[in-house]
Structure formats: C-alpha cells, structure tokens
C-alpha cells in the first residue's frame, strides 16, 4: 500500500472537489491498495456524506442511498426479493456489514491476474497483455469478452439491478445525471481499463429501482463451488409475472458469465406469452448463451448458463 493522504469531509462539495479516490466500506479499495493494484495518492472517506436512506418515493420507485450497507439493504422489507437474495448470497455477513452498495457496483473484477501486479493485465496496465486468455480462466467470462480482456464483473447486486432496469443517480459539482445501470458498465473492447461511465469528480449518489409490482415474485440463484462466501460461477436474477399459467412478463439477467452484468433479453422474449412450465423454460433457455466465446477452461459455462436459467425460473415459479 503506497502512502496516501486521508481526508474525511462531511459535505458533498468538499468530497466532490477533492479529486481523491472515494473510500466507502473499503472492502475493495483497501484490499487492492494492499496488493498495490490501486495506488491513489489521496483517499477521501465518504462515509460521513449524506448518501443514505432506503425508501419508496411517491412514484413507487425504490431509492437507495449509495452509502447504505449491503446488509441493511438486504434486510429492508421494501426491497425486492431478487435484490435481497443477490445481496445475501454475496460475500459474508461481516463484509455485507462493511460494504456499501455504491462501492459494490464499483467493485473491481476478481480476475487473479488483475489482482497480481507481478502479472501483465490489460485492465490494470493497458497494453500489457491478458494472460487469462491462455491461462487459468475457469472463472472467466464467455459473453461480452474481447481479445483484450475476458474478466467477469463480480457484483451480484448489479445483476439483480440490471434485471430490474435500475438507474443510478450520479452526483457532481456540475449537478447530477441519471444513467441506466446497464448502460453504465462498458464492455472491455480494446479499452478494458475503462470499466464504466463514471466521470472524474462524480460519485454514485443513489440507486433507483423503478416500480415493478410483480417483482415481488423474483429470486436470485447463484451457482458456485462452495455453498457460501464465494463468487459465482454462474448466477441468474429473475422476476416472473405469471398469469393463468402463462408468462405475462419476465426479467432475467446473468452473472459470472459476462464481462458486464448480462441481460438475457432473448430468453425473456422467448418466454413471454408462453406457458410457465419446465419444458417451456428449458426451450427458452437454450438461447441464453448465444454468442458465447468459451475459453480453454470455461466452456462449461455455456452449458451451465441455460441450466441456471431453468433452475431460477422453476424456483421462482414454485414460489
């Protein structure tokens, strides 16, 4: 960890003009600073800023302050089940007590080469190469990859939020702007170091989940090598609106397989209007991994993804 200067302002203005790297729960930042992956000369502790609160606004949209802790959001009664589940299946209770949801959306990939400064990595050190493509890539992405980077986005929360068309409110001294979370993340392309659309001097202020009453019937399935305290091999967020045995509407997104949270619009389309049964789920899920580009050790994800979709649909349809 390189020496740095630490400040802890209490007003947004001070924080936004500081030009320093924001520290919320620190569970990504402190970790990566110890590993020398991140070397900010100045760090601003943003925890005293007024970016808190979990509430449903008059329009029925759910608004969550970026500094709310993962544990608090998961436990909140007005939060959709798919969000709670995604959070409760993330990390550990200790980490969820520390980590903010703004930080969660900004967390960095868990690619082992990214985390190891002795190794090249295009995302950390543009142009240095990507050892994952030929190396240990069992955990890596099959969708949205490029020749420059194949790392997954590791947030479970983001997958649930993308399924629900969430937006994030960004604050800066220039005022605010609102971005769909799905558009916020960038595919790696030739510039994997540019992960998102946050501009210098901006912070995530709030997360807004548009009202979706039927998302009361939603869930998150996370498949992993051990039962807990691990990132996903594959995960699926699903909200399902079944009327008279038919799929009236559905939202599905996947994690662990894409370089960004991966919305499965083709599967949604195939399901809409069809019967809500296992056979239909299985048929619709077949297109889930379309366009996948498997690597030497992660080809199984193309088979696992449709199966995880089916499992999630079955679990949510059984209630």
């Amino acid at each position: 960890m390189r020496a740095f200067e630490l400040t802890a302002p209490t007003t947004l203005d001070e924080a936004l003009t500081s030009g320093a790297t924001a520290l919320a729960g620190g569970t990504t930042l402190v970790d990566l600073m110890k590993l020398d992956v991140l070397t900010p000369p100045r760090v601003v502790d943003i925890n005293a800023l007024p970016l808190r609160g979990i509430e449903v606004d008059p329009a029925g949209d759910l608004r969550i302050g970026a500094l709310e802790r993962m544990s608090a959001v998961a436990a909140h009664p007005q939060v959709y089940p798919v969000i709670s589940r995604a959070l409760l299946l993330s990390a550990s209770q200790q980490l969820r007590n520390m980590a903010s949801i703004g930080g969660n959306l900004m967390q960095r990939t868990r690619c082992g080469y990214f985390r190891d400064v002795a190794m090249p990595c295009n995302r950390r050190d543009p142009g240095s190469g990507c050892p994952a493509i030929e190396g240990a890539n069992r955990m890596h992405a099959v969708l949205g990859t490029s020749d420059a980077c194949v790392a997954t986005h590791a947030s479970d929360l983001a997958v649930a939020l993308v399924a629900l068309d969430a937006r994030i409110e960004l604050v800066s001294t220039q005022g605010g702007r609102s971005v769909a979370l799905a558009d916020f993340y960038r595919l790696p392309g030739d510039t994997p170091e540019r992960e998102h659309d946050l501009r210098p001097g901006e912070l995530i202020g709030e997360i807004v989940v548009p009202r979706l009453d039927w998302a009361a019937r939603s869930t998150y399935v996370k498949v992993r090598d051990r039962q807990s305290y691990e990132f996903a091999l594959c995960s699926v967020a699903v909200a399902l609106d079944v009327r008279d045995g038919r799929v009236a509407d559905v939202r599905i997104a996947a994690g662990g397989v894409g370089t960004v949270p991966w919305r499965l619009t083709a599967v949604e389309a195939a399901l809409r209007g069809g019967p809500a049964d296992e056979a239909a789920f299985e048929a619709a899920a077949q297109v889930a991994a379309d366009g996948a580009r498997p690597l030497s050790h992660n080809g199984y994800k193309t088979a696992l993804l449709p199966r995880t979709v089916v499992r999630a649909l079955l679990e949510v349809s059984r209630g």
Binding site: R110, M139, Q227, S228, E230
Partner: peptide, 11 residues
C-alpha cells in the same frame, strides 16, 4: 483464501 477453496460452515 478466496480461490483456494476450503469448505465453509454451510458446506
């Protein structure tokens, strides 16, 4: 310890 897996309690 995040990637050399040993069982956790829930396993």
């Amino acid at each position: 310890f995040a990637s050399y897996l040993i069982p956790v309690n829930a396993d």
